[in-house]
Design a protein around this nucleic acid. Structure first.
Lengths: 144, 144
DNA sequence: CTACATGCAAAGCATTTGCATAGCC
DNA sequence: GGCTATGCAAATGCTTTGCATGTAG
């Protein structure tokens, strides 16, 4: 975490952006959230730093997105959420309880390599999502 | 297309929804669009049926989503787009020119099967997206 | 000291809602 | 004929913008 923060600060400087307490705090909060909405990020920063405005939250999220630190996700409930874990993985969403789990697999990289070759695209990022019933909700389903 | 429309009409009836001209027309339009936004759907129906209101477009899109005919997609430009082709595939987005291509592969089904077994989830749908530079834009990139 | 970032309030838009009317079943 | 769907207009709520002030470099 400390390491990632330092890299982030370096990248800010390198790209000519200023290093402000708001940006540092928002980076820490966002990277510690799972798949936050703007609203959730705002509520969190509001607890520790009540003067930070929604405008700053929106602007910082947009900056992080441009810097490749976060990514907009597939939406299931209409609200845009942000992927903050940029390690290749698949999100499995339970469409009943709303839970989201990360799953890692070497197959993702394989698929990635296959498509890059086949399509002639230069692939920079991805977003993989499964939607279904988690083990708990699956059982409840069958008894309904 | 005719076949799909009939299935849709049957499903409407079966689920107790009424079959209206607006729903039929919106179904046809939406299924003929690639990855439309709400706005695009509204503009299209507005040309042929100028009295259809935005409210009806929103409600019908929500109905189609509930019925599993369409799905919200990963967003790249902030606007929610809808996946209207429910055949398993991956979308490759060019982050420069905005083009989106569908790619089909047996690997998707394999990945699907692997995860269903491994995770104990009952998977109902998915959304796979790659983001990068298409062959054309890739070359422009290198010469900049 | 200069330029960019922040915070606030207002503006802008997309989406939803309430309700009267129309039209499917 | 009953009950859902539609269309309209108003309301809501999220996001952006403009501008004065603060602050990093």
């Amino acid at each position: 975490m400390e390491e990632k923060l330092k890299e982030f600060i370096d990248m800010l400087r390198k790209e000519g952006h200023k290093v402000t307490p708001q940006r540092i705090e928002l980076f820490k909060i966002i990277k510690n959230c799972k798949h936050p909405t703007v609203e959730e990020v705002y509520h969190r920063i509001n607890k520790s730093h009540p003067t930070v405005s929604p405008a700053t939250v929106y602007k910082t999220i947009e900056l992080l997105r441009e810097m490749g630190e976060i990514q907009e996700m597939s939406v299931i409930d209409g609200k845009i959420r942000y992927e903050t874990n940029m390690t290749p993985h698949i999100n499995i969403h339970c469409i009943k309880c709303g839970k989201v789990e990360d799953v890692f697999s070497d197959r993702i990289q394989e698929l990635f390599n296959e498509f890059e070759k086949k399509s002639q695209y230069e692939i920079k990022s991805h977003s993989f999502d499964f939607f279904g019933y988690c083990p708990d909700c699956k059982n409840q389903e069958s008894s309904e």
